[in-house]
Design a protein around this nucleic acid. Structure first.
Length: 289
DNA sequence: TACCAGGGCCTTT
DNA sequence: AAAGGCCATGGT
């Protein structure tokens, strides 16, 4: 038990060439809730039941505590490292608003998260703010997730939650969302909804299946499909995206970009939120770019 | 179609 | 220190 930190330092880092991977943009754009940067600059998080330590060094992404085999079988997919983001950015660059958003954070990427974790996380996100969502998910994992060797916890499976009551979730302090999470867990655990099948189902069928879950409407369903099932044509519309669409796309989002609409939405969402944070204390101007 | 549902972060006073 | 706005919404 005293070897847990030693193991991190004795594993040789696995280096992957990923010039267009910006950890801050990837982890802090609201698509995931279990990653954080330590004071020493290392990014750490838990996904697929594994704890990962990560650092960007120049054009290299350094996996600090993962065996090469794990990097290629698990993390390569999770971080979407095989997708040609240069081509995607080039396609987006022809659109005025998207060009700005891409220039602002060219290293942004979509994670390919676990379907259940994505669904559950975005149920918990509704009418909620990101710092609190993170706290709720931390408490949910600590209470019902499988413990990891380093003291962290895996995201609890649907089976781990399905037989619980709303009262059991009280320590999680997720409010009215508790009943929604439990309904989702029961439908996933029973097989009433096959989360694995959502990746290949016709989009409307996948949406309809998810929206039979209490507390899952169009926005949460599209988040689950985009972030958890790799459905890149899903375009979750929340209050921010609604503002973006009204401001930059009064005639609608370009049809040609719809197949990658989910990635586009992510660039726009990230840019707009960061811009709002910057201009909050400086209301003057705002039209530079 | 409004309004309501936990709760807490964050900004403003 | 206290108050109030604001949440990556959906149900009624």
């Amino acid at each position: 038990m005293t070897q847990k930190t030693a193991a991190i330092h004795t594993l040789p880092a696995v280096s992957v060439y990923a010039p267009d991977f910006d950890p801050a943009a990837v982890f802090e754009n609201g698509q995931c809730f279990r990653w954080e940067q330590r004071p020493d600059g290392v990014w750490t998080g838990i996904a697929h039941g594994r704890r990962l330590h990560l650092r960007k060094e120049g054009d290299a992404l350094l996996f600090l505590n993962a065996a090469p085999n794990e990097v290629h079988t698990l993390w390569r997919g999770y971080f979407d490292l095989d997708r040609d983001y240069a081509a995607i950015r080039a396609a987006f660059a022809r659109d005025t608003a998207l060009a700005r958003a891409v220039a602002f954070a060219p290293g942004l990427r979509l994670l390919r998260q676990d379907p259940w974790e994505a669904l559950c996380s975005f149920i918990l996100s509704q009418n909620n703010n990101i710092p609190r969502i993170k706290g709720i998910i931390d408490r949910l994992c600590a209470a019902f997730g499988t413990p990891l060797a380093d003291g962290g916890f895996a995201f609890p499976s649907p089976q781990a939650l399905a037989d619980l009551s709303v009262a059991d979730l009280a320590p999680v302090r997720c409010g009215f969302r508790a009943a929604y999470v439990l309904d989702a867990a029961r439908k996933a655990a029973s097989g009433e909804i096959d989360l694995g099948a959502l990746t290949d189902l016709p989009l409307d069928d996948a949406r309809a299946a998810l929206q039979t879950i209490r507390g899952v409407g169009p926005k949460v369903a599209d988040c689950a499909l985009l972030f958890g099932c790799g459905r890149l044509d899903c375009f979750p519309v929340d209050v921010w995206v609604r503002r973006i669409l009204a401001a930059y796309y009064p005639d609608g989002f370009p049809e040609a970009l719809r197949p990658l609409g989910g990635i586009a939405q992510q660039f726009l969402f990230h840019y707009e939120r960061c811009r709002a944070a910057r201009t909050k204390t400086a209301p003057a101007g705002g039209t530079n770019g």
